[in-house]
Write a protein that binds this DNA or RNA. Structure first.
Length: 688
RNA sequence: GGCGAGGUAGCUCAGGUGGUUAGAGCGCAGGAUUCAUAACCCUGAGGUCGGGGGUUCAAUUCCCCCCCUCGCUACCA
């Protein structure tokens, strides 16, 4: 672990992809922890630059634009604006929120690539890819549609089948069709520039596996898995017309791979910060944050980005030379919603912009709940009931209540003027010790990226205040000993002022309110633990509630909204896939469909979905490999009659030659059913 | 299939280089109290730490096998 004492921090939060709004999963995984960390360091008086921006390149954006009949730039403009505004309203205090379609970024990423090219960091490889002759361009995986070889969904994409979740490559699709022209694509040679990750294996082992054993288990484990699995060269360029043109000869019509340019976005965002927000910038300051050894670089990301931030981007930085490497990459796991995975395409999410509209002024409640239940070590579940409970039982009943009790009592007994501190008893000294200890405990947890723990300490701190009031009972003591009550409330008020400091990274809006009620300017972290933040005689401002109870009806409405979504999804699923193009009778008669009987079935080793079937087709006994192992056990299906497309060209699957394809019908839930004759038919009987 | 991360009280989660009664918050039960948004404070009930083997004087913690969840990966007609 690097134990240097850094002069400055560069903090990055994963660039949100500009083809949809931000949801609570993004917030809990990345933006809330990153913001807490950045705010904490700023409060500590450290030199911090917290950068982010929209990731606006890549294939899905071009597809969305095409669907909506707009240009890719128009598509990203819409979401960039929306994301930027909702972050700002939510209190995520980026120093800079930039975007990868802007000029600074294009220049930066382009120069980056060019220098690496000139240094010989890339290897060139020619491969065959699908090409649309009518549209005159190569097709990204996503631009090819065809029938899924696994589940027979006719609308699978070249990279993935959204029906069964299988990862595919375009060559596997049955009857591939270009989404641009509807034509059948042809294979054509194309040249790309590869980053030879394999050449960096030794270095990565040293740097991560030996040098960063302190990284979180999920991050370290994932890196180890990749490194030990053998790294392959990865293409850093694509055949696409949306993105940053590859700045080298012979690369016309090609752009930088989105995962090459996106992380460089952190650097361009830093440049934009100085360009746009710092007067008299020399244009060189960004280098301090990216090239100076006394800077600590931290990437906040979700677990799906680990390989890019821990392996690929560092290799790019290393190969380019002159850059510092991430000191830590505290990746979080995923947040689920009401027991189901969050899904943008299924609209199963709580969208930030909608939350801000539905819960005005309640940014801190969501920040609190997402931090308290952040998926730091494993996937966690967000429920609205939990949201309500945490608000009512923790924020209202504990933190808000303590503050309110203290201010109300001070108002009642001392007309809102800070009373003096008189003789101290053991009970008081314990609380004073707590005031001196808690900020340090909270700080230590934040610095270890344990934000849930830090927040728990914060609540314990406020709980200490509640206990103090309960133990000392100033409302009773006031009747006979006002001096004693002065001391109790003096200490309670100092605790409150300390709370305002330590809650700021987590609950910035409430911290500001509290400072306002206390009538003070915000203190920074170096004042935390002090007992004289509020001078004796200082006048407090009018008190009001920091947090309000949330009624059942409010969260029930949100749950109902989700249930409606679920219903809508089910209705959408009921829709059968669209009709395919017309075929001629001749085409149909070309297919030789036969009744056959399953003689033997066994699982194909090293696969999850494949069964190797031996069939009696009447014509012969043959082997067919079928992707049905998740639906049927081998012993259950022996002896069954099935329909077989018998004259399909044979194909090798997992080293087994498959001679034909079993016909299966698929239900709404994805379950499969054999197509078999109503009565037993002779093997080899034709189907037409 | 391979790899990685998880599987700990009703719920959401901590923790553990192996060692007397395994922790927190919430929820629940009881008590005390009324300054406070019926909140706070105290006490208590609740767990064979996924299952099965093994190593050991001793395992929830180490080793092996299995099951479940999530992610990455795989020439899945």
């Amino acid at each position: 672990m690097t134990q240097k004492s850094p002069k400055r921090y560069t903090i990055t939060a994963a660039l949100p992809y500009a083809n949809g709004p931000v949801h609570i999963g993004h917030l809990a995984g990345v933006y809330v922890p990153a913001d807490i960390y950045a705010r904490y360091l700023r409060s500590q008086g450290r030199d911090v630059l917290f950068v982010c921006g929209s990731d606006e390149h890549g294939v899905p954006i071009t597809i969305r634009a095409q669907k909506e009949g707009i240009t890719p730039q128009q598509a990203v403009d819409k979401y960039h604006q929306m994301i930027k505004e909702s972050f700002s309203e939510f209190g995520v205090a980026f120093d800079m929120y930039a975007r990868t379609s802007n000029a600074t970024h294009h220049q930066t990423a382009s120069d980056f690539f060019k220098q690496m090219y000139e240094q010989g960091n890339f290897t060139e490889q020619v491969s065959e890819q699908y090409y649309d002759q009518k549209a005159g361009q190569f097709l990204a995986d996503r631009y090819i549609q065809g029938t899924c070889p696994v589940c027979s969904n006719p609308n699978a994409y070249g990279d993935q089948c959204e029906n069964c979740g299988s990862t595919l490559s375009p060559s596997e699709l049955i009857n591939p069709v270009s989404m641009l022209s509807g034509e059948k694509p042809v294979l054509k040679e194309t040249k790309h520039w590869y980053l030879p990750l394999n050449q960096y294996e030794t270095w990565l082992r040293e740097w991560i596996l030996q040098g960063h054993t302190e990284w979180k288990p999920n991050v370290y484990g994932q890196c180890k898995s990749w490194i030990e699995g053998g790294l392959q060269p990865r293409p850093m360029t694509r055949d696409l017309d949306w993105g940053i043109p590859v700045p080298v000869p012979g690369a016309e019509g090609k752009v930088l791979y989105v995962w090459f340019d996106a992380p460089i976005g952190y650097i361009s965002s830093t440049k934009d910060y100085f360009k746009e927000k710092v007067a008299n910038s020399t244009g060189e300051e960004w280098k301090l944050y990216w090239q100076s050894e006394d800077t600590r670089l931290i990437h906040f990301i979700g677990k799906d980005n680990i390989v890019f931030h821990c392996i690929i981007f560092p290799v790019i930085l290393k190969a380019h030379g002159g850059y510092i490497l991430p000191d830590n990459v505290p990746a979080n796991e995923f947040l689920n919603l009401e027991g189901n995975k969050i899904s943008t395409s299924r609209n199963w999410a709580v969208w930030l912009h909608e939350y801000l509209q539905d819960f005005p002024g309640k940014q801190d409640v969501l920040r609190y709940v997402l931090c308290a239940n952040a998926p730091e070590a494993k996937d966690n579940d967000f429920t609205w009931k939990d949201y309500q409970n945490r608000n009512n039982n923790e924020l209202v009943a504990n933190l808000g209540n303590f503050v309110n009790r203290t201010l109300v009592l001070t108002n009642k007994y001392f007309r809102s003027k800070v009373p003096p501190c008189n003789q101290l008893f053991d009970l008081d000294k314990e609380i004073i010790a707590g005031i001196q200890e808690f900020p340090g405990k909270i700080a230590a947890s934040i610095e270890a990226f344990r934000f849930r723990e830090a927040l728990a300490h914060l609540m314990d701190f406020s709980r200490l205040g509640n206990k103090y009031l309960g133990d000392t009972e100033p409302w009773k003591v006031i009747k006979e000993n006002e001096a004693r009550v002065q001391t109790i409330l003096h200490i309670s008020l100092q605790l409150t002022a300390n709370l305002a400091i330590v809650m700021e990274p987590f609950l910035p809006f409430s911290a500001a309110k509290l400072n306002q009620m206390l009538g003070i300017q915000p203190f920074n972290w170096s004042s935390a633990g002090k007992l004289d933040l509020l001078p004796i005689g200082h006048s407090l401002k009018e008190a009001y509630l920091l947090f309000d109870k949330i009624e059942d009806a409010v969260v029930e409405a949100q749950v109902q909204k989700l249930l409606d979504t679920k219903k809508a999804n089910e209705a959408a699923n009921r829709k059968v896939p669209p009709a395919k193009a017309e075929v001629s009778f001749d085409d149909f008669t070309k297919m030789d469909i036969r009744v056959a009987t399953i003689l033997a079935a066994e699982a194909v080793p090293k696969t999850k979905k494949l069964l190797k079937l031996t069939l009696d087709t009447g014509l012969d006994k043959r082997t067919v490999v079928s992707g049905i192992a998740e639906h049927f056990k081998p012993e259950e299906i022996i002896g069954r009659q099935v329909c077989l497309l018998a004259n399909l060209a044979p194909r090798d699957i997992k080293g087994i030659q498959s001679q034909g394809m079993i016909l299966m019908a698929e239900d709404r839930d994805g379950s499969l059913s054999f197509i078999n004759p109503e009565k037993v038919i002779i093997n080899g009987g034709t189907v037409s």
